[in-house]
């Protein structure tokens, strides 16, 4: 039996907790607490330690899913959670003012891990963004010399999130075939 670990990161409100709840095959562990900072404009609760879920693959393989808090004050959790991770899923909230800045920021934070492993980017709430288009994200990733799939996702959709996870797994090991 082999176990894989991937992390979900990204800014506050991108849908990390929701995404893990959507695809986890076990009841997810959340550490949500009432928000008292700027976050509360968007949502009532925010993750303060991590989210955890498990996705079962074919056979005995399991993927452990860890979601980080979004706020920078929890950056010590980013380090702790990224230890031994096999890849990073970056969720970006497309409806924020400067989503590309979020993309650059999180890629820089995790650049050592990403350079050794793999990255897949999911953009949520793209329909509420100004230009409703993934092109700027692809362009920015090319400029940064980062290879990554970019998808529009709805964090509540199991199909969307598992597609994102599969894209990540495929870029880690192109020889393997993963079924849901």
């Amino acid at each position: 039996m082999s176990d894989l670990k991937i992390i979900f990161t990204g800014p506050v409100g991108a849908g990390k907790t929701t995404a893990i709840s959507s695809i986890s095959d076990v009841p997810p562990v959340n550490t949500d607490k009432a928000a008292s900072d700027m976050t509360k404009v968007k949502k009532n609760q925010t993750t303060v330690a991590f989210d955890y879920g498990v996705m079962n693959l074919n056979g005995d393989e399991k993927i452990h899913l860890y979601g980080t808090p979004g706020q920078e004050r929890f950056n010590f959790m980013w380090d702790i959670l990224s230890t031994n991770a096999l890849g990073v899923i970056l969720l970006i909230d497309g409806s924020r003012k400067e989503p590309l800045n979020d993309l650059i920021f999180f890629i820089n934070v995790f650049k050592d891990l990403i350079s050794k492993t793999a990255l897949a980017v999911g953009v949520s709430q793209l329909d509420k963004s100004a230009n409703k288009c993934l092109k700027p994200y692809n362009k920015k990733l090319r400029e940064m010399n980062i290879k990554s799939a970019v998808f529009e996702v709805d964090a509540r959709s199991k199909t969307d999130i598992s597609l994102l996870v599969k894209a990540l797994l495929f870029s880690i090991d192109q020889g393997l075939e993963y079924a849901s």
């Binding site: 550490t31 607490k33 303060v48 330690a49 808090p69 706020q71 004050r73 929890f74 010590f76 959790m77």
Partner: peptide, 9 residues
Amino acid sequence: AMSAAMLSL
């Protein structure tokens, strides 16, 4: 931040 994370865990 550390206090909040530890206590929630």
